[in-house]
């Protein structure tokens, strides 16, 4: 790609054969190479990208908090809605499924059981929904400033986790009020939540890329998520459902990641849920889903880094 200067020029500008050609004789690529310029907007290596994301960790947490504050800034009760929303959610589901349909038959302490399912599922649901819009909804920010875009789905998951912690406080109050004892098993809620957070972050990243490319996905997502909810055993013991199907189908139903994370949380918080009630290999599945979604989602998102905010 080195330029080929005209003969007359060469004799004038470069008397010695080893002389360096002047800048104006270089092709653009060679000129860029001479001064160490890089192609603008090129995707960094995975290692450098990860280091960049880590350097922006304060941005991720500040963005998460800011997003949460902004969500409720328009309402008069403000941050109180962080607690009110999960409470009202639980009340509505209890009204419909606990009183109207009476699905509580066979499940002891149905309110606590239901609320655990609703809140844990809601964590995944909101992360996925907001993750789909992570790039599309922040186009102004993406087009204004340069930062690794993975910060956006990550901060969205973090703000949903913050929201969930409020819900968990409400849940704890409900569970204790319903006469469940406080046992050392409650400590299992911490690793269960951590694994679910990694799973959600991975899913949010993968869907953020999809949502940035195909904007219609965010219109479709609510329907997919509602279907997923009915397969997640939020309102009933998923094992009852599994009994109606052939083995392969029921195994697939039990391996559903939201079923796994809900079961873990119920086991941690509710004394009435016994080890024998749980599907087998629960922790293995929880770790497996977290790793697969977390690493897979991150790689998928990173590979699309050059595309975000364009067009």
């Amino acid at each position: 790609m080195i330029a080929v200067p005209g003969g007359a020029r060469r004799s004038a500008a470069a008397p010695a054969p080893a002389a360096v050609p002047p800048d104006e004789d270089l092709a653009p690529a060679a000129l860029a190479a001479r001064y160490g310029l890089a192609v603008s907007g090129a995707r960094p290596s995975l290692r450098r990208y990860t280091a960049e994301v880590w350097r922006r960790r304060h941005f991720v947490s500040a963005h998460a908090t800011a997003k949460l504050t902004a969500t409720y800034s328009g309402s008069r009760l403000g941050q109180l809605w962080q607690v009110m929303t999960p409470l009202l959610n639980a009340a509505v589901y209890y009204l419909i499924f606990g009183l109207l349909f009476g699905s509580s038959r066979g499940v002891p302490n149905y309110i606590a059981y239901l609320c655990t399912g609703v809140f844990v599922y809601n964590f995944t649901q909101t992360s996925v929904l907001a993750g789909t819009k992570a790039i599309q909804g922040n186009l102004a920010l993406v087009r204004a400033l340069h930062f690794p875009r993975a910060c956006l789905p990550l901060s969205i998951t973090l703000s949903q986790l913050q929201q969930l912690l409020f819900s968990m406080a409400v849940l704890t109050a409900i569970v204790l009020a319903r006469g469940e004892p406080l046992t050392p098993r409650w400590l299992l809620a911490v690793p269960a939540l951590a694994l679910q957070s990694v799973f959600n972050a991975g899913l949010a990243m993968a869907l953020a890329r999809l949502g940035a490319k195909v904007t219609d996905v965010s219109q479709l997502m609510p329907f997919i998520l509602r279907t997923w909810m009915y397969f997640s055993g939020v309102f009933y013991d998923p094992r009852h459902l599994a009994g109606h199907f052939p083995h392969a189908v029921s195994a697939a139903l039990e391996a559903n990641p939201t079923v796994v994370y809900i079961a873990l949380m119920r086991y941690a918080l509710l004394d009435s849920v016994h080890r024998a009630d749980l599907p087998p290999h629960l922790w293995t599945l929880a770790i497996g889903w977290a790793l697969a979604a977390g690493i897979g989602g991150y790689l998928v998102f990173w590979r699309g880094e050059e595309e975000y905010g364009r067009g």
Partner: peptide, 10 residues
């Protein structure tokens, strides 16, 4: 192609 020094800010 566009080659740049560092990351340009818009």
């Amino acid at each position: 192609r566009v080659y740049t020094e560092g990351q340009p800010s818009l």
